[in-house]
């Protein structure tokens, strides 16, 4: 029993897309609890959270925002090309997306390395917190920072793996215009990774004013 049980190819594509959307919703809820904690703890320590944001790597975070937005455009263009039956063009866009994904992770690694070097580790560990008179707020901020951006980075890794697999299938010709919904689902996942980052960016890099 293979996918032959669908009435038609369109139905199969519909089911696959709807299933992917439902999965994306569950992914959003993986982050939802963390947003709740962020909101509650920011309300408890507004000044420490603002200080934490000011301490963050604003430029690296903003660079990553541009990288992910560009990658979203690239994967959308790849899908467009495949739907227009130009698989070689689709492959080029997809490889571009993949390169941007790896670029994002590289920037992220530099950023984490910088924090570790400054003595900022999750859970209020590290020498940075020893210098503070009341470290609780910043400790909470940076724990959430590591958990939320770390979970997001894991999604980037997973997304990049999916993109690489799709690129391989495009390369071998196993993925063609008739099965474009497979690429469409991969693209949907990648867009979600982008959307999550679009929300994380202000929370951890921009809102350092007096909140």
């Amino acid at each position: 029993m293979s996918e032959a049980h669908f009435e038609s190819a369109e139905r199969q594509a519909d089911a696959a897309r709807l299933g992917m959307w439902a999965f994306l919703v569950s992914e959003v809820f993986l982050f939802a609890g963390l947003f709740t904690l962020y909101g509650a703890y920011r309300a408890a320590w507004p000044e420490a959270f603002a200080e934490g944001v000011r301490h963050g790597a604003k430029m690296l975070g903003s660079l990553n925002t541009v990288i992910l937005i560009t990658s979203s455009f690239a994967v959308a263009s790849s899908l467009r090309a495949l739907q227009e039956d130009r698989p070689r063009v689709a492959l080029r866009w997809l490889l571009g997306t993949l390169a941007l994904a790896l670029g994002f992770l590289a920037v992220k690694a530099v950023e984490y390395h910088g924090h570790v070097h400054e003595g900022i580790l999750p859970g209020g560990h590290g020498h940075h917190f020893a210098t503070l008179s009341a470290p609780a707020g910043q400790a909470a901020f940076f724990t959430l920072y590591y958990v939320m951006t770390g979970l997001h980075a894991l999604h980037v890794v997973a997304g990049a793996a999916v993109l690489a697999w799709l690129a391989w299938r495009l390369h071998t010709g196993a993925l063609d215009a008739r099965r474009a919904h497979v690429l469409s689902n991969g693209a949907l996942y990648w867009h979600l990774v982008d959307c999550v980052w679009i929300v994380l960016w202000p929370l951890f890099y921009l809102t350092g004013g007096q909140a």
Partner: peptide, 28 residues
């Protein structure tokens, strides 16, 4: 984010994020 908006800073930043997420969702 460089403009001192006080308590409105968060609302403005999240407002931009909401618009951007909508653009990604609706178009891409």
């Amino acid at each position: 984010s460089y403009v001192p908006l006080g308590a409105w800073g968060m609302a403005v930043a999240l407002g931009f994020a909401a618009i951007k997420v909508s653009v990604v969702a609706v178009v891409f």
